[in-house]
Design a protein around this nucleic acid. Structure first.
Lengths: 362, 362
DNA sequence: CTGAAAGCGCTTACAG
DNA sequence: CTGAAAGCGCTTACAG
C-alpha cells in the first residue's frame, strides 16, 4: 500500500520515487562518492584515488585522515566506474567444460573463498571446446566484459588456442592442469601421476597380480598422468600392466559400466581395477553386480576424485582424494596476486575405504 | 622470448607494450565505440544510443543504416560504461544457500541458458542465512555491484528480510519456492505438494499400509509442502499417516541414515518410506543394509530430486523428478522480461525405478 | 525525429 | 607529496 500519496503534490513534481522503494526508506540516502570523500577530507579526489589504490606516494597523515573518513562514511568505490577508468573490470570468470557438478561447485567455492573481501566477483562461463565458434565466443566474452582474469580448470586449461586468445587480449589467467603447461606463475599443477601411483601402490600392496585400469578419454592430459603413475607403481612391484587390461572410458557412469562388463568377462578375470574417476567406478560396481560378483571379495575397486557418491555406494569406495577447493583457492589467489603462491595441500591422496581387499585364493 | 628488444629505442620511449601481448598482435585494434559508430553513420551518439536501447522514436531509415554499420564493425556497447550511466550493472546474481552441488549446477545452467545472447552475466553468491551479518552483507553486495537483479532459490527465497532489503535497494528479484510467497511476476512456484502427492499415490497403489515419511528440516517450506501432498494422497487411499511415522531429518545422507535406523527398529515395521530428498533416501538404503533388509522386497523407498546418485544406487531409486534447470530458466526469463512467463514444464513428476514394489506378504 | 551539453564515478597523464 | 584537466564509453535531461 505504499502507493497512496501522503501529501498533496506541490507545483513542481516531487522527486520521482523509485518504484519499489519502501515508504520507510523515505529518501534513499545517496551513497558517498569519491568527490564526497575528497570534500570532507579537504583533499583532491586524485589523492583519495591514490589512497584507494594503495599508492605509496601519499603523506601518512593525509592517508590516515582520509582513511578515517572513508571508514566513517562507509565509502566503497564503485567497481563499474573504476572498471571503466581502468579499462578492466573486477570480474573473474571461471571458464569450464568439466561436466561434474561436484567439481564445478568445489571450484567455485575455492575461488569464492579467495576473492572474499576483495572487489572481485565470480562470473561463471561454461563452454564447449568442440563448438566451431568456441574461440571467437571466448574472445568476445573476454573482450566485452574486460575481464580482470580467468581461471581455467581441466580440460579447457589444456586448450592452447584459448590461451593464445587470452594472451592476445591481455587477459590474465591461471591454468589448473594435471601437468605443467605454462609458466609457473600461471600454473597450478595437480600432479595426477601421484594419485595414479598411490592407487597402484595400494592395489599392489594388497597382493593383486592381475590389475586392470579403466581410463578416461585419452585426449585428456589427466588420463595419461593417472595411468603413468599407476603403471609406475605396478612396475615397481613387478606387476605388468598389459595393453589389453587398459580400457578407455569417458569419465561417465555408462562408460564405466561398459568397460567393467568387458573386464569381468575376461579370463583370467582381473582381481582389481583402478577406475580413472569415481563415476566410472560406480559403473564398475554395477557391472560387478550384473556378473554376480561381490566387491571387494571378488573384485577390488579404486576410484579417483572422492566425490559424494563414493560414500553412498556400497561398499564405500576406496578412492583418490583431490583437494579441488583448495586448488581453486590457490589458483584464484595466484591470479589476483599475479605470482605463484606457496601451496602444499594440493596433492592427491589415497582414501582407503571398503572396496579394496586382498584377492581371493584361487 | 618476445622480451628481446627488436629495435634500438628511440629518443622518446616507445608506447608501452602490454606485457603479455603477442608480437603478432602488433597493434591491438581498438574496439569501436559509440563515437565511432556515430561518426561513421553521420548521426549523433545519442541517436546511436537510442538504437542500442531499442527506442521507438527513430526514423526507420536512420535505424537501418546505423544497424548496418554496427553489424559491419562488430560494435558492441561496453557494459561497464552503460552500467555506469544507467546506474545499474548487467549482472544477475544467484544468491543461494542450498548446499547440493547438483541443484546449484542445474540452477546455473538454467539461468545461463536464459541469459545467453543477452548482455547479462551470471555472478554466483553463496550465503549463510544464519550468519548475523547476513542481511548487511547482502545489502552491500547488491548495492555495490548495482545488480540488475537477483535470483533466489530455496531456502533463501523464503527469507522475507532479504526480500525487504532488495525492495529497499530497488533491486529486481525472482523467488523460486515450493509455494507462492509474493506477487506472481516475481514468483516461480515449484508446487512441491504435487511431488509429495505423487509419491504417496504411488506407494498406496503398490498396496502399502504402513508408510513412513522422513522429512527435511521443518523450517523449510518445501518440507511442509511435500508432506502435505503426501498425506493427502495417503488419506485419499484410506491410509493414516500418524505422527510417529513422520521423522524430521535434515536433507542429508547422515540424517537419512539415522531416521532410517529408527524407522526400521519399529514394530510393526513400515513397509515403505518416502524420503524428503534423494540424499536421505541413500541414507535409508544404508540403514536397510545395516538391518539386513533388501530393497524393495522388505522396504520400498521413494526419494525426491532425481539427482545423479539416485541412478548409481542399487536398486535404482524411484523418485520425484524436479525440473530445476527449466525452473531456473523460467525464473531468469521472468527477471529479464519483468513479467510472468508461461510455463508448463515446471511440475514435479514421479520416476518409477526399482526401489518400490508391493509389500511382502506378512 | 534528432542533437549538444552535462554527468555517471572513477583513473591517467601531466604539472608543479 | 598533491591537484586541475581530460577522459573512460555510455545515458539522462532538456531543447528544438
Amino acid at each position: 500500500m505504499p502507493s497512496r500519496p501522503k501529501q498533496p503534490s506541490r507545483s513542481k513534481p516531487a522527486v520521482k520515487a523509485r518504484s519499489t522503494a519502501t515508504p520507510s526508506a523515505a529518501k534513499a540516502k545517496r551513497r558517498p562518492t569519491i568527490n564526497d570523500i575528497a570534500r570532507m577530507s579537504g583533499v583532491s579526489k586524485k589523492t583519495v584515488s591514490r589512497i584507494i589504490n594503495d599508492s605509496p606516494v601519499v603523506n601518512e597523515e593525509t592517508r590516515a585522515k582520509v582513511k578515517r573518513i572513508i571508514a566513517e562514511t562507509g565509502y566503497v568505490p564503485d567497481p563499474q566506474a573504476r572498471g571503466l577508468a581502468f579499462r578492466k573490470s573486477f570480474l573473474i570468470a571461471m571458464i569450464y567444460d568439466n561436466p561434474s557438478p561436484e567439481y564445478i561447485v568445489s571450484m567455485q567455492k575455492g575461488i569464492l573463498s579467495a576473492i572474499e573481501g576483495t572487489s572481485f566477483q565470480l562470473v561463471v562461463r561454461p563452454c564447449d571446446r568442440t563448438k566451431p565458434t568456441f574461440l571467437s565466443d571466448m574472445r568476445s566474452f573476454v573482450e566485452r566484459q574486460r575481464l580482470f582474469g580467468v581461471l581455467l580448470p581441466p580440460s579447457v586449461s589444456e586448450d592452447e588456442g584459448l590461451v593464445k586468445v587470452l594472451r592476445e587480449l591481455n587477459c590474465d589467467y591461471v591454468r589448473i592442469a594435471s601437468v605443467s603447461l605454462d609458466k609457473p606463475e600461471v600454473m597450478l599443477v595437480t600432479n595426477d601421476h601421484i594419485g595414479g601411483y598411490e592407487a597402484g601402490q595400494h592395489l599392489a600392496e594388497q597382493g593383486h597380480k592381475i590389475i586392470a585400469h579403466v581410463s578416461g578419454l585419452k585426449s585428456f592430459r589427466s588420463v595419461h598422468e593417472r595411468r603413468r603413475g599407476f603403471a609406475r607403481a605396478l612396475a615397481e612391484n613387478g606387476i605388468d600392466l598389459p595393453e589389453k587390461l587398459v580400457l578407455e572410458g569417458a569419465y561417465t557412469f555408462e562408460s564405466g559400466l561398459a568397460c567393467g562388463e568387458k573386464l569381468l568377462a575376461m579370463k583370467p578375470r582381473p582381481t582389481a581395477v583402478f577406475a580413472g574417476n569415481d563415476e566410472m567406478a560406480a559403473g564398475i560396481y554395477r557391472a560387478a553386480r550384473n556378473h554376480g560378483l561381490e566387491i571387494p571379495r571378488d573384485l577390488s575397486v579404486v576410484g579417483y576424485d572422492d566425490n559424494p557418491t563414493s560414500l553412498r555406494l556400497w561398499p564405500p569406495l576406496t578412492t583418490i582424494r583431490i583437494p579441488t577447493e583448495n586448488n581453486a583457492r590457490m589458483a584464484a589467489t595466484m591470479l589476483i596476486k599475479k605470482a605463484p603462491v606457496p601451496h602444499d595441500d594440493t596433492l592427491p591422496s589415497l582414501v582407503v575405504r571398503e572396496s579394496t581387499a586382498k584377492p581371493a585364493k584361487s
